[in-house]
Design a protein around this nucleic acid. Structure first.
Length: 596
DNA sequence: GCCGTTTTCGGCCCGACTGTTTTCAGTCG
């Protein structure tokens, strides 16, 4: 096809394409008459999901002459044409038409709880409401109940929903979700508050260890749902009950966070966990597999002709579908089901595989714990080694170390080592990678270091080419053991650097420089997109807490979860190595430092 | 719009809850 070379240079990523298909589906639903084909809408959503789950960027795959867009499930001749149009021009004509019919702000209405496409359409047609502001005005003036399908209750719910949108900007960080999960679990289980309470599992994106969590999904087994719901209602005095039925309940806390509860019979726990853990895309594939086998899968179990055949455990359901049990972190419909069908799932790294933390700060720079306190915290986690990696001088805000202070700090670490025998203290540094790729301290000092991580804290707005060259040059010095938080993103605050990640992965494998998976809840860097590259390049990783206080060593668990979502096995992770193996790696690097 | 124990049209994942109806459509997960 003659347009291909041009498309091959496209910088449009898969996520952008998926979003345009999702937007098309939304707009089709808002504009279509009731008789319009709802499966056409679903086809766009399927296409979006399918594109999103690809491990390769289409803009790059398309350069391969043997690559066929229509080989992608859910992509037929029509959507393939639209993908080509998007890669070439950034849009396609159907979407342009739809956008002309529906103002962009009308789509915002879909973000309001209890407003879906049908009601958005009514609001647009009958009341000419095209924005959240207009919706608020109309609801306040009780104009909504004039519309078919709206009553006084919906009006109130919509006003409450609008307030909620203003109150909470988005999703919880994993740390907040973990604290909330612990609190609600304790409340439900305390002092036998609920007679006959069986299992209680927090499912949903929390159990899949996603980077951020929308709401908490509680799955509970109990013969009687009423006391379970009554107990949840007392969790937070300022909470509001959003809905309550026979087995299902939803509350919104004073903080704006939402908790959904579902009570199921004991023999349905496995099926319910699969169902409420998701992801939605994963579940859809499972149900299709069930249907292909003449079975039906729902949250109560797996059925053959209305006869229950599995459902009390997840293992039972997966096995009945011809699949190995799939860890929740992998349930994203990105190929894990095929692996489970052929017994090729990875043996994911676990927290107990981690022998040490290789990124820790003390109060000598911007940490809040002393060296001694950090060592005790590491001993409590039964680590065999840790690296103290305080900042270098460039990071003035963090009281970064020059060579004199660094050597003094290392001397203190040596002295501390004399006092402890059950843990090895590595003398480290988090060295800033300056704008041109040079390192923040002179080469001589590196020969004295046990462990060096490079990181960027300043000058983050360089171009994609500059940023890539900067990190690549730093790795090519041979002085770095690892790159810390490689993309620099801060969840909800700052996007990742402009960076050619494939090039970073390529050079990191060449230079034997590890890439960090950082456990700080706002970082979790490398993120989802980058971890997809793990399968393609033989890079090794370090899984670190980046703790700035003793209690933050627990952030290791978030880093491990992130590694699991990337499908990593322990042999890919440096600090899941025994100390002897780690030392041989360090010795190799240290010899390079001396010869540099 | 996609897909096929397909070869051209009929089916497409499943169920709870709610409000406004008066038997169900819409929304949500």
């Amino acid at each position: 096809m003659s347009v291909r070379p041009k498309i091959g240079e496209s910088v449009i990523d898969n996520e952008t394409i998926a979003k345009l298909f999702d937007e098309t589906a939304d707009l089709l639903e808002i504009t279509s008459s009731d008789r319009a084909n709802p499966f056409r809408v679903r086809a766009y959503r399927n296409g979006a999901r399918s594109v999103r789950s690809l491990s390769q960027q289409l803009a790059s795959s398309i350069r391969d002459a043997n690559f066929n867009l229509t080989d992608i499930p859910g992509i037929g001749k029509d959507l393939a044409g639209k993908i080509l149009a998007i890669l070439e021009t950034g849009h396609f004509s159907l979407l342009d038409d739809l956008r002309r019919q529906v103002p962009a702000s009308t789509r915002d209405l879909l973000n309001v709880p209890n407003i879906g496409p049908k009601r958005a359409r009514v609001l647009q047609h009958d009341l000419h409401i095209h924005s959240l502001d207009a919706l608020y005005a109309a609801a306040s003036e009780h104009k909504l109940s004039a519309c078919k399908g709206f009553g006084p209750t919906s009006e109130q719910k919509i006003l409450a929903g609008l307030a909620h949108i203003q109150l909470t900007s988005g999703r919880m960080l994993v740390s907040e979700a973990k604290a909330l999960a612990a609190a609600v679990t304790k409340h439900m289980k305390s002092k036998a508050a609920v007679p006959g309470l069986g299992d209680l599992v927090i499912a949903g994106s929390y159990r899949r260890c996603k980077e951020t969590i929308g709401d908490l999904d509680l799955v509970v087994t109990c013969s009687n749902a009423k006391p379970v719901m009554d107990r949840l209602a007392t969790f937070d005095s300022g909470s509001m009950i959003l809905g309550r039925g026979e087995t299902k309940m939803a509350i919104r806390l004073k903080s704006g966070r939402q908790i959904d509860l579902r009570v199921v019979p004991e023999r349905s726990l496995g099926a319910a966990l699969i169902y409420f853990t998701g992801s939605k895309a994963h579940n859809i594939v499972l149900r299709k597999i069930a249907a292909d086998r003449g079975l039906k899968l729902n949250e109560y179990g797996l059925y053959k002709n209305d006869e229950w055949i599995a459902g009390s455990t997840e293992h039972q359901v997966y096995r009945a579908l011809g699949l190995a049990w799939i860890p929740p972190e992998l349930r994203e419909a990105t190929g894990e089901i095929e692996l489970a069908a052929t017994n090729r799932l990875p043996h994911l790294i676990e927290s107990c595989d981690i022998f040490g933390d290789l990124h820790l700060h003390t109060n000598v720079t911007d940490g809040r714990g002393s060296l001694a306190e950090m060592v005790v915290a590491a001993q409590r986690r039964h680590y065999k080694f840790i690296a103290i990696t305080d900042h270098s001088r460039r990071v003035t805000m963090a009281n970064g170390l020059d060579e004199t202070r660094l050597r003094r700090h290392w001397h203190a670490i040596d002295q501390m080592q004399q006092k402890v025998s059950d843990i090895v203290l590595l003398k480290g540094i988090e060295i800033d990678i300056l704008e041109g790729g040079k390192l923040d301290l002179s080469k001589g000092v590196f020969a004295e270091a046990d462990w060096v991580v490079g990181a960027i804290h300043y000058g983050q707005r360089q171009s994609r080419m500059q940023m890539t060259k900067r990190i690549v040059n730093a790795m090519r010095t041979g002085l770095l053991n690892a790159i810390a938080h490689p993309t620099g993103r801060l969840i909800g605050q700052r996007p990742p650097y402009e960076l050619d990640l494939e090039e970073v992965f390529r050079v990191a494998s060449d230079c034997h420089c590890a890439l960090e998976i950082n456990g700080q809840p706002t970082r979790l860097d490398l993120g989802e997109a980058a971890l997809n590259l793990a399968a393609k390049y033989p890079v090794r990783f370090v899984v670190n807490s980046d703790a700035h206080a003793p209690e933050e060593l627990a952030f290791m668990d978030f880093a491990v979860a992130q590694a699991r979502r990337g499908g990593l096995e322990k042999h890919r992770v440096l600090n899941a190595c025994a100390l002897t193996e780690l030392r041989s790696i360090l010795k190799y690097t240290s010899s390079r430092a001396q010869s540099a």
